[in-house]
Design a protein around this nucleic acid. Structure first.
Length: 659
RNA sequence: GCCCGCGUAGCUCAGUGGUAGAGCGCCUCCUUGGUAAGGAGGAGGUCAUGAGUUCAAAUCUCAUCGCGGGCUCCA
């Protein structure tokens, strides 16, 4: 008798007699898929391969979809199971270890999974090889991953017996009347987990433990500090090797390393943590970045304002920064009994400029832009190279406009952002529209109808341009909705940079007004917008994006003139002078070295062009041109080279040449 | 701020209780060499800082500062 009508999703069907497991059913339907499958979805429910198919709760109709390798879902499962293997190894080696959680990670390319533990003694990186070795030993024993469904009370008893208070806490929070637990037979490991998992440890082969770090239980600094062991896993060794290589590539691009090697910037103890010293070469790049930005600001009819770094404490009380943001502000300093605080943001100053005179509806919009340097009291542990600092410059702008102008202004901000990011070679841009959520603890300001119309204006501006976006509920700031701009760099990492935010709060606090055509005062809308967010941070992103090989227009040194012998030094200087007259940034290398060494120096400095000059070139009045990524590209005249080089600079080309 | 690790020459690192080392870089000299490293010599270090243990500390202990990896935070 066959009581089960089993159907492969998008495939064959078969009649089977229960009891039978998904794995067995799958084997009858598609041997190949059965061999590969890690788990399966049965009538939409994720289950292990040894899940028993039953007629009772499916009317006999069963649809199976295998979870296969080379899918996001499959990878997540594999890593999740590897995390369990990790926990089993740790328990084996360090009895008495308390387990936290051990999820897979798919969004962060740096890691594949982690497990949070509290071991009887602090673990160090030196323990990782030992733990990894034990994981391999356990994996090779072909142990069963076994799922069990038991009453909640029994589960609590099990974890109490094992003195796993954190697991107990999780079960109490999340578990229903019946909870599922997973064992790895032959190990001390048992976990409260919904799964699914592989059914045998031999499926876990290509994995690696990476690092060990601190993590609070449930991310709460009030709760115990645990140790998080990070690792990653893949379906085979080749994938793991490829990932390892990619990781090394990312390490080579580290902006801190390149910043030193290319002499771009430094951060020195003596001057303070999180404070950047821009060296001449980094400074040249920054100048080009800022010049280009100012050029575009002019194109978009922004005006330029300049404001101080410090203001009376009272101002920050009026703006609300002190109440809402005070922890991130440097402490007040006193002069003649008046308190001052360094600015963490530029907005209140721009408001001051708006308020300096009475505004008519005809004057709007007012678009104030400033490279405004701000200071924030970031915790020492959060500082990171150029990415997280204590003093930085925002490519800031504030637009004061009428409600009917919001959509146009937002649209212009988007056009601006796309233009600029594309110039830098960021072709993949992701937009998030953050709107108000239901969470009443957030104390959203402004009327509901203002939120609705603002959100509509933002969405309309995006739709108008055919820009796809993700709507994120509850991510808006308390003072208004916003659009966040994220870009993907040359090796596929996402960076949150710019933001366009509506603000219902500050115009209110400062009592901003304009006189409308009805001769009555109205409240203007304020838009905050920054493209880079922070020039320092964006510079860091660029260094990694280009791997230090800046395109021609940004390169601090654009051309290295390399004389082969001292006889041509004078010719080399003449060439350099002429190129400098065309506003190219040129260095001549007259060191007593052979040409190979000079080329090597220039390559390592990632200078876009090298001009190799010897007797031949001097006699013929030519240049032997070498491009940093293509090598020798042949001889040309000085005029030819100058035109080509100028062309690259003026078009800001080559953003994608970096390798 | 919290947890773990680290701190030796400008950089990368070796040195585990007994007179501070290497490579690269830098300086000088020789070499004038045709597309990613020519040769020789030299300078350069209170071994992060402070205290302690010891006859003796770069080395062991403690504290402080800084850095790295995370967590937290991120208007």
């Amino acid at each position: 008798m066959s009581d089960l009508n089993v159907q492969l999703k998008n495939g064959a069907g078969i009649q089977l007699q229960s009891p039978v497991t998904v794995g067995e059913a799958l084997k009858r339907l598609d041997r190949d898929a059965a061999k590969q499958a890690l788990a399966a979805r049965v009538n939409g429910r994720d289950v292990d391969l040894n899940f028993q198919l039953e007629a009772a709760n499916s009317n006999g109709h069963i649809e199976i979809e295998p979870v296969l390798p080379q899918t996001q879902e499959g990878l997540g499962l594999l890593r999740h199971s590897t995390a369990h293997l990790l926990a089993a190894a740790v328990l084996d080696l360090f009895p008495g270890t308390k387990l936290g959680i051990g999820p897979p990670l798919l969004d962060d390319p740096r890691y594949g999974f982690y497990y949070d533990v509290i071991a009887p003694r602090p673990l160090t990186e030196a323990d990782l090889p030992v733990i990894e070795k034990r994981m391999r030993e356990i994996g090779k024993r072909n142990l069963a991953y076994r799922r069990d469904e038991i009453p909640k009370e029994e589960a609590l008893r099990i974890f109490d017996e094992r003195e796993e208070p954190l697991k107990r806490e999780l079960i109490e929070e999340k578990g229903g009347d019946v909870v599922s637990v997973y064992y790895i037979d032959g190990t001390p490991f048992v976990d409260f987990c919904v799964g699914p998992h592989v059914t045998n440890s031999n499926r876990l082969r290509a994995f690696k433990l990476l690092t060990i770090a601190g993590a609070y239980w449930k991310g709460d600094p009030e709760r115990p500090q645990m140790q998080r062991i990070y690792g990653t896993a893949f379906f085979n060794q080749e994938e793991l090797d490829a990932w390892t290589k990619q990781r090394e590539e990312a390490e080579k691009r580290d902006h801190r390393r390149l910043g030193r090697e290319l002499d771009l910037f430094s951060i020195q103890d003596e001057y303070g943590q999180g404070l950047i010293l821009w060296h001449p070469k980094g400074g040249m790049i920054r100048k080009q970045m800022e010049d280009y930005l100012r050029e575009e600001l002019l194109n978009h009819n922004y005006s330029f304002v300049y404001t101080p770094h410090i203001a009376k404490r009272e101002l920050w009380q009026v703006s609300g920064h002190e109440q809402n943001y005070g922890d991130s502000m440097f402490s007040p300093t006193v002069l003649e009994d008046v308190e001052f605080r360094l600015k963490p943001m530029n907005c209140p100053f721009h408001i001051g400029i708006y308020k300096a005179q009475q505004r008519s509806y005809r004057d709007l919009p007012q678009r104030y832009s400033e490279m405004g340097t701000v200071y924030r009291a970031e915790l020492s542990g959060t500082l990171h190279g150029l990415m997280r600092v204590r003093g930085f410059t925002v490519d800031d702008a504030h637009i004061f406009c009428r409600p009917d102008q919001v959509q146009t202004e937002i649209g212009d901000c988007l056009d601006f952002a796309y233009k600029v990011f594309r110039t830098y070679g960021f072709d993949k841009i992701k937009i998030e529209l953050s709107v108000k959520g239901d969470d009443t603890t957030k104390n959203y300001l402004g009327r509901d109808e203002d939120w609705r119309s603002a959100e509509a204006a933002l969405a309309e501006a995006l739709d108008e341009r055919g820009i796809g976006y993700e709507r994120v509920e509850g991510e808006a700031a308390f003072y208004g909705p916003k659009i966040d701009i994220k870009i993907e760099d040359a090796i596929g990492r996402m960076w949150q940079l710019g933001t366009v935010q509506l603000d219902f709060n500050l115009p209110e606090r400062f009592g901003l007004e304009y006189i409308g055509d009805d001769n009555k005062p109205h409240r203007p809308v304020m838009i905050h917008r920054a493209l880079f967010g922070s020039i320092e941070r964006f510079f860091g992103v660029l260094i990694e994006h280009y791997a230090g090989a800046f395109p021609m227009w940004l390169a601090p040194v654009q051309v290295a003139v390399l004389p082969i012998t001292d006889r041509v030094n004078e010719y080399a200087e003449r060439v350099a002078r002429e190129l400098r007259a065309a506003k190219l940034r040129v260095e001549v290398n007259t060191r007593g070295e052979k040409i190979g060494a000079k080329i090597r120096d220039a390559q390592l400095q990632k200078i876009p062009f090298m001009l190799v000059l010897g007797d031949r070139e001097m006699e013929e009045g030519t240049l032997a041109v070498r491009e940093r990524s293509r090598g020798d590209i042949g001889a040309m005249s000085l005029a030819q080279f100058r035109e080509m080089a100028r062309g690259l600079v003026e078009t800001r080309a080559g953003a994608n040449v970096a390798l």
